[in-house]
Amino acid sequence: MSGHVAAAEVEIEATPERVWRTLVDPDCVRQYMFGSEVVTDWRAGSAILFRGQWEGKAYEDKGVILDLDEPTLLRYTHYSPLSGAPDEPASYHTLTYALEPVGAGTRLTLTQDNNDTEAAAEHASGMWRQLLESVKALAEE
């Protein structure tokens, strides 16, 4: 991992398989990913797009799925034009979702690398904690 790393973690009262389904189901993604529509075939090497509206402005974030190991690991690159950074490799983050069985539930950890500063990493960590709480709520329904 490069740059400052943002991290968030949550324990979920659901199996890793249930949490995995929540992470990849398009209807669930829309609910936990700030209203985004996800477009992908969930295969390593494939494109992944997140489309939506933020503060009245249309956006399309993009990346490539790097690793998929159902139900334990999902890793993809991510670039958002809303960041204001140029669309070049140095502007991409790698998002890693790691699922680990814990008792009858699952520990879900999310990391995001390549943050420019510790403050940026802290800000991202806060956003990712909110996202994981939404995943938790959906998976435990």
Rank of each mutant, 00 (worst) to 15 (best):
residue 134 S to M: 13
residue 19 V to D: 02
residue 96 T to R: 02
residue 1 M to F: 15
residue 117 T to W: 12
residue 2 S to R: 11
residue 20 W to A: 04
residue 132 L to Y: 07
residue 53 Q to K: 12
residue 46 S to H: 05
residue 40 T to D: 01
residue 22 T to I: 00
residue 71 P to C: 08
residue 141 E to D: 11
residue 66 L to W: 11
residue 54 W to M: 10
residue 60 E to M: 07
residue 9 E to Y: 04
residue 116 D to S: 11
residue 10 V to C: 03
residue 69 D to R: 14
residue 82 L to C: 02
residue 19 V to Y: 02
residue 7 A to S: 14
residue 93 H to S: 08
residue 71 P to T: 08
residue 3 G to I: 00
residue 78 H to K: 05
residue 34 F to P: 06
residue 108 L to K: 02
residue 42 W to K: 01
residue 95 L to G: 08
residue 92 Y to K: 03
residue 20 W to P: 00
residue 43 R to Q: 15
residue 66 L to S: 09
residue 24 V to T: 09
residue 26 P to H: 01
residue 90 A to S: 15
residue 139 A to C: 01
residue 86 P to D: 07
residue 115 N to A: 13
residue 19 V to C: 00
residue 73 L to H: 06
residue 67 D to S: 10
residue 109 T to E: 09
residue 90 A to F: 12
residue 25 D to M: 04
residue 18 R to S: 10
residue 136 K to F: 01
residue 43 R to A: 09
residue 128 W to C: 08
residue 138 L to A: 03
residue 116 D to M: 12
residue 81 P to Q: 09
residue 140 E to H: 05
residue 79 Y to D: 00
residue 140 E to I: 00
residue 49 L to Y: 14
residue 31 Q to L: 13
residue 9 E to W: 09
residue 32 Y to K: 08
residue 108 L to R: 06
residue 21 R to P: 12
residue 130 Q to N: 13
residue 126 G to H: 05
residue 137 A to F: 13
residue 85 A to P: 07
residue 86 P to C: 11
residue 51 R to V: 03
residue 70 E to L: 06
residue 90 A to C: 13
residue 44 A to R: 12
residue 131 L to P: 03
residue 20 W to N: 08
residue 71 P to Q: 06
residue 116 D to I: 12
residue 15 T to S: 14
residue 42 W to T: 03
residue 73 L to C: 08
residue 70 E to N: 15
residue 66 L to T: 07
residue 2 S to K: 15
residue 130 Q to Y: 11
residue 124 A to H: 14
residue 12 I to F: 02
residue 65 I to N: 04
residue 85 A to E: 14
residue 88 E to R: 15
residue 21 R to I: 10
residue 84 G to C: 01
residue 88 E to D: 13
residue 93 H to Y: 12
residue 114 N to H: 11
residue 16 P to D: 00
residue 121 A to P: 13
residue 93 H to V: 09
residue 138 L to C: 07
residue 24 V to P: 04
residue 32 Y to D: 01
residue 8 A to E: 05
residue 112 Q to R: 10
residue 37 E to K: 11
residue 43 R to K: 15
residue 68 L to P: 02
residue 127 M to R: 12
residue 69 D to C: 13
residue 81 P to A: 12
residue 27 D to G: 10
residue 5 V to K: 05
residue 58 A to W: 01
residue 110 L to V: 03
residue 139 A to W: 09
residue 91 S to H: 04
residue 34 F to T: 10
residue 119 A to I: 12
residue 133 E to R: 14
residue 38 V to Q: 04
residue 58 A to H: 06
